[in-house]
Simulated assay, not measured.
Amino acid sequence: MRPTVSELCETYIENRDKIKSAFLWDSAYLYPICAAIFTNQRQSADINRMKACQEMLKAETGIFSNFRGTAKLAMISMLAVDSDPGSKLQKSLQVYDFLKDHFFASSYLPVASMIIADIAEAEQFEEIAARTRHIYNLMKQEHPFLTSSEDSVFAALLALSTLTDEQVVRETEMCYELLKAEFLSGNAVQSLSHVLALGTGSAEQKCRRTMELYRGLKEKGYRYGVSYELATLGVLALLPADLHSVMTDIMEVDDFLSAQKGYGILGLGRKQRLMHAGMLVSSDYIGQTDTLAMHSAAIGGTISLIVAQEAAMCAAIAASAAAASASSSSD
């Protein structure tokens, strides 16, 4: 394993274990995502800072707020890595209020709020919130039965891009048509198509790289998930790097994770593990200066990292909600 990747893996596991020990009753699906939030910033998880952010979140939001819902631990982590968590929370709440004018409340809306607050200027918040809804509406026109609350996150990412709304929809649809026969899962393919729409190059090139990556891993015995995990595969396919090198890194990281506690027989499944491996590999490539220089304005390094993180977060929120629902049904 390359030294930079190895270092990221070690930091990631340390962060995950620290967070899990301190927030014992949260979802097992969210610990890896929160660990990755710190690891992406090359930070060690600061538990005292996380608990201070937790108290701040309680003070600034109501008990039924979605900031304190399924994704709460991720919200706390996103605040804790920021140099000014108080300001970040206030900006995120401001964006959230604008988004609530256009969307029903959901566990995904705070995630979209933090993305916009991270990247946009305050004077742009209202306009971007409205654009997020417009892009979401265009998504729903194309796929009324596939588009749901988690797509608000992808709509927010697309609203922050340099593409026009019409370009967004056209590019997404071209990717969707090229990919649907390969992966069959309509909802996951739609999310993957949103990610690929952010990348440069033709739809054919981007989709071909995605399918080559998926098939290459499958041939080696590493079958990438085709449900909520699929969107993170798009980020890996967009990396300006040799696909063979990317595949090798993913397999090596997956092998490392398979030996770690929490990823064994009784832990998270192989598809989640492979997604986490992909998330770490993308973090390593995006963190390299020469790689960043190769990215165009359409999908810069920062956006690439956020896309990978938020796609994995959406998968974790969905898995957590499904597990909670299954648990309540069996009670």
Rank of each mutant, 00 (worst) to 15 (best):
K88E: 02
D97E: 15
F64N: 13
A71C: 12
E55N: 13
Y96D: 04
L57H: 12
F23G: 01
D97I: 03
L30W: 01
T39A: 13
F64P: 08
D84W: 01
A22R: 06
P85F: 11
I76N: 04
T61I: 12
E60Y: 10
D26V: 08
K18C: 03
T61A: 05
M78Y: 01
S65G: 11
I19M: 05
G86T: 02
T70Y: 01
M75A: 08
P32F: 04
L73V: 12
T11Q: 12
E60F: 07
K72F: 07
D17H: 08
T61F: 09
D46Q: 11
A22T: 04
A22D: 01
F98N: 06
S83R: 13
K91M: 00
A36Y: 03
P32H: 06
K100V: 12
D17G: 01
T39L: 07
A45D: 02
M50R: 04
S77H: 07
Q90R: 03
L99D: 02
D97M: 09
G62D: 12
A71Q: 04
T11N: 14
Y29K: 13
T11H: 04
L79S: 02
V81K: 08
R49C: 10
D26P: 01
F38E: 02
R16Y: 01
K51G: 03
C53A: 12
G69F: 11
D17P: 04
K72S: 13
E55S: 15
Y12A: 01
A74M: 08
N15V: 02
W25I: 14
V81C: 08
K91I: 00
V95W: 00
T70F: 00
T70K: 10
Y31L: 05
Q90N: 11
T70E: 13
S92E: 01
W25P: 05
F67T: 05
P85K: 07
Q54V: 07
S92Y: 00
L99E: 02
R42M: 11
N48E: 14
K91A: 01
S44A: 13
L79G: 00
D82G: 04
L79Q: 02
E10S: 09
R68K: 15
I47C: 06
A45F: 03
C53I: 08
L79F: 00
F23Y: 15
V81R: 09
K20L: 07
D97Y: 06
I37W: 00
K100M: 15
K72Y: 09
K72G: 06
T39R: 10
M56S: 09
S65A: 12
L24D: 06
F64M: 13
I33C: 07
S44K: 15
D97Q: 15
W25N: 14
I19D: 00
L24E: 09
A80P: 08
E14R: 14
N48K: 14
D26L: 08
T11S: 12
R49Y: 04
S77Y: 09
G86F: 00
L24A: 11
A22M: 06
Y29G: 04
I19N: 01
L57V: 09
S83G: 10
T70R: 09
C34H: 01
K88C: 03
S21Y: 05
L89C: 00
W25V: 14
